[in-house]
């Protein structure tokens, strides 16, 4: 772990119209760390993770990703987006492109990688997430779990330094959740820096370095998985954990 955070957020505020969605978020992530964010619906988890790659614009505070400050400078935004991969709840694969094309499109056109090289890389990544045989299918012909693993491969193909996951398993049937989590656990163990919004507590316990509990746009509590599960400090955290751990 280096001494300088790879993601540095201080006092991040975000309003949707009059609605104050993020109310002063301070959060640092160091290289190789796995951060899990959890909290009730509407607490601002997605909003926060999306400000990191500028899918949402924050109005106050400072976000620095790998030394690049997020500002209105389009160059900076594109640089940061090349450094961060994102996996969405709804997969968001491109339905008109094959799995192979989904994965190679951005490396070819954004990173200017030669097509053959991009395709070799894509096959490697598909092996990594366990579905090398699906390369020439279209997303519509894959199961949800397979689609989400393609989405992970697609994000990794850009060789990001940071991976952002926004509830990657909540749109999946229970029997497919494990295959996606396994791919994510492998990735975490390979040393990837990750921010994961999830309520999969098994995943958090296995690989998270720190957990953040969000509620109403603020960080209520933070700690290692052990601290959060065994000894939560705040009443809101206790209540929320008791609710999700019942199921």
């Amino acid at each position: 772990m280096s001494d300088k955070p790879i993601i540095h957020c201080t006092g991040v505020h975000k309003w949707f119209g009059d609605f104050h969605a993020l109310r002063g978020i301070d959060l640092d992530v160091y290289e190789g760390e796995v951060i899990v964010i959890f909290g009730p619906s509407g607490s601002g988890k997605s909003t926060f993770i999306r400000t990191i790659n500028r899918l949402e614009e924050h109005q106050q505070g400072e976000i620095i990703v790998d030394g690049i400050e997020l500002s209105h400078d389009v160059r900076n935004i594109e640089l940061i987006r090349m450094e961060t991969g994102m996996v969405f709840q709804q997969f968001n694969l491109f339905p008109h492109l094959s799995v192979m094309q989904n994965i190679t499109l951005a490396p070819i056109w954004v990173r200017n990688l030669p097509k053959e090289e991009a395709e070799e890389k894509a096959i490697e990544l598909l092996e990594l997430v366990g579905i090398p045989e699906q390369a020439h299918k279209f997303p519509g012909n894959l199961s949800g779990g397979q689609q989400q693993r393609v989405a992970i491969a697609r994000a990794l193909a850009m060789e990001p330094k940071i991976m952002l996951f926004d509830e990657p398993t909540s749109a999946l049937d229970p029997e497919m959740i494990k295959e996606v989590l396994d791919a994510m656990i492998d990735l975490a163990k390979s040393g990837m820096t990750m921010i994961v919004v999830t309520h999969e507590m098994g995943f958090a316990r296995e690989v998270a370095d720190r957990m953040y509990f969000f509620d109403e746009g603020v960080i209520v509590e933070t700690g290692t998985p052990d601290e959060i599960y065994k000894n939560p400090q705040e009443d809101r955290t206790k209540l929320f954990l008791s609710q999700i751990l019942q199921h």
């Binding site: 790659n53 899918l55 090349m82 994102m86 968001n92 951005a106 056109w109 954004v110």
Partner: peptide, 18 residues
């Protein structure tokens, strides 16, 4: 075209033209 498609492209660093 769903917004998610455009967000996915943005997240991959693709510019407006691409």
């Amino acid at each position: 075209v769903p917004l998610g498609q455009i967000e996915a492209a943005k997240a991959l660093g693709m510019g407006k033209l691409h």
